[in-house]
Design a protein around this nucleic acid. Structure first.
Lengths: 361, 361
DNA sequence: CTGAAAGCGCTTACAG
DNA sequence: CTGAAAGCGCTTACAG
């Protein structure tokens, strides 16, 4: 039983005995209207159940009041996230008893959405969440351009050149990856996080060489994390080697198995949780006790890492914060198109769990 | 370095040497335009980087192409979800080894959002996700009305009368709760799910009375679940009693403690996971072995229930499906304002875990 | 198949 | 403080 024709400013104006300009003013700059007039208009609005038409408002006002967020669709597994260097104070959180409650757990994109959502609505903007399958994503990006006042894109969900093109037309920020000067970006301190956890490992590892399970060479995240690792391992005096995984659990297990064929590591530092989880399994099967004989760490802070045997020490990415900061950065860009480019890098946490031995620095 | 004035239909028309009507047609009903003309227009669009303005399109076309989803904000804990009766075939899934992967785990609203998102984009609509703090939520609902072609609201996030009022003006479906004839609704089969799990419990419980841990009296969910319980327990010949909790872990623990003061139950059937988890803790402290001396079940399928000791058998709500169905129901309503009211009730699953003993019916 | 024109419902200078 | 009027960028009958 929905609609009859909804009331417009004209209806309100007629009913309140004013012009439509005044109705508009009551809604947008109430202080410019005499109190008595304002009250009459407000009453009319209420009586008629008037709700402003956002399309008309958007057209006339040249702004939609909407922010767009483009996330990977559901046809393919989530794309890994880029990032880079910097050196913040990394907070170590005792999660030995698993009492640390990650705000809303680690659903990478869902946390991001939530962060954006909170921040957007808090700033008076609505959030349009766009996903869509791989292939159509660039179409969706174009579509978004016409719908919103600004766009947040997750790096790599759309080809870089398309992102750059969109950024030229509309305020845009790239999340979880660098934009290489073509747009503002907000990401996580991959190198700093990896460096921190590496230091932690080096300070407490049992005898034996260090095995670094890196990511694919084309992963910006992987590159930055490895950079953080090298920063600490170089000159540490430890023996170490690097293996590359595809960031999957199987990949981690496979490289672990291969390594175990000729060394018995005292530490396995993985560039993401999945591969660390795979390594954990192999170590167990090889009868190597974690953390007594070998410590293991991951990166990301996915939920599964909390429940592995033993629970995995890992570097957690503050995705909700990333969302919040992305929105704030976007709003800044919207306010000043000529402001210098931003490349925000958020600090990460390290969640200490049993895979890296008892507590302490 | 964003904008210069973006190109409009006029620019495209000029460049292609056609009228704006033709440009519009190329975009909206290409088959009405000669191939050669179409190509020229498309080329112009491409060269200019033209993107249609959604506000103008929405205003002229009287549709926005956007669906709105109103979810609880982030200032308060998620509101419990209503629902009601029906009798579907309930699927029992062996999750004894925790190998059952709940699609995207149980973040109640996030799953819902995801379901809506998939379904909306798949149907050619964009999804506007609105939350906002408790108090402002009714304002947000009004705001949504002006922005979208249809609205999905989670029951109880906004006072029922406001939902009803909105439903009179715009296509609207209520999710996770009944709309009492004022709007279409999509929800979960609370009673059927509880009845099923109750049957399961009765068929396998050890000696001892049944304790039902119900929800607050004002929770529609609670009421329906209790109804399902009573349906099975009545005439079962079992001794039983009901206690009411506030759906929290502490509430569950407290009522469990109280009950243990004078009975030693053979089964605890809780109306939600949280309270079941609380009960589990109390039973352990009382030295009662679950499932050997007493079986325990929950409802909802939250993530924590997978990791409790022992893992909790529970009734899982298919929230992604709820989202998908909500969108489909909404689209139907949008297509036909006068269609009879819908009140969809989706079947639930029961996840079998250790708290209810070894497998089998 | 294509164009001229009206109209969608607002906002915002510009006068007064 | 308030009103008349232009204009935002499209879509869609209506003619031809």
């Amino acid at each position: 039983m929905p609609p009859r024709k909804p009331p417009t400013v004209y209806d309100v104006a007629t009913r309140a005995g004013v012009s439509i300009a005044t109705v508009s003013r009551v809604l947008r700059s109430p202080q410019k209207v005499t109190e008595s007039t304002r009250e009459r208009v407000l009453a009319a609005i209420d009586e008629l159940g008037y709700v402003p038409n956002a399309s008309a408002r958007g057209l006339a006002g040249r702004r939609t009041g909407v922010l767009g967020l483009l996330i990977p669709g559901h046809d393919a597994p989530p794309v890994p996230q880029p990032g880079s260097a910097g050196d913040h104070v990394v907070e170590f959180i005792d999660d030995m008893d698993r009492s640390f409650v990650d705000p809303e757990r680690n659903h990478y994109f869902e946390q991001l959405v939530r962060g954006c959502e909170i921040s957007a609505w808090g700033s008076g903007y609505a959030l349009l969440v766009a996903s869509g399958p791989d292939l159509s994503r660039s179409v969706v990006l174009d579509d978004l351009e016409g719908r919103v006042d600004g766009i947040i894109v997750i790096s790599r969900t759309v080809p870089d050149d398309l992102i750059a093109r969109s950024a030229r037309r509309v305020p845009l920020v790239v999340v979880a990856g660098r934009a290489a000067g073509t747009a503002d970006s907000v990401r996580v301190d991959n190198a700093g996080g990896m460096a921190a956890v590496t230091r932690h490992v080096l300070a407490r590892k049992p005898e034996g060489p260090v095995l670094y399970l890196g990511g694919p060479a084309d992963s910006p995240d992987g590159v930055e994390r490895e950079e953080g690792f090298r920063r600490e391992i170089d000159g540490s005096g430890e023996t170490w080697r690097i293996a590359s995984t595809d960031f999957t659990t199987e990949g981690g297990a496979q490289e672990m198995r291969r390594a175990l064929a000729d060394v018995r590591p005292g530490a396995v530092i993985a560039a993401n949780d999945q591969s660390a989880l795979g390594a954990l399994t192999e170590l167990r099967e090889a009868g190597i006790s974690v953390p007594d004989d070998c410590v293991v760490t991951g990166f990301d802070g996915i939920e599964d890492a909390r429940w592995s045997r033993p629970p995995l020490t890992t570097v957690r990415q503050p995705m909700t914060d990333v969302g919040v900061q992305a929105v704030q950065t976007l709003l800044r860009r919207m306010a000043d198109a000529d402001a210098p480019g931003q490349d925000l890098q958020l600090p990460v946490d390290v969640l200490l769990r049993e895979s890296c031995g008892p507590l302490g620095r």
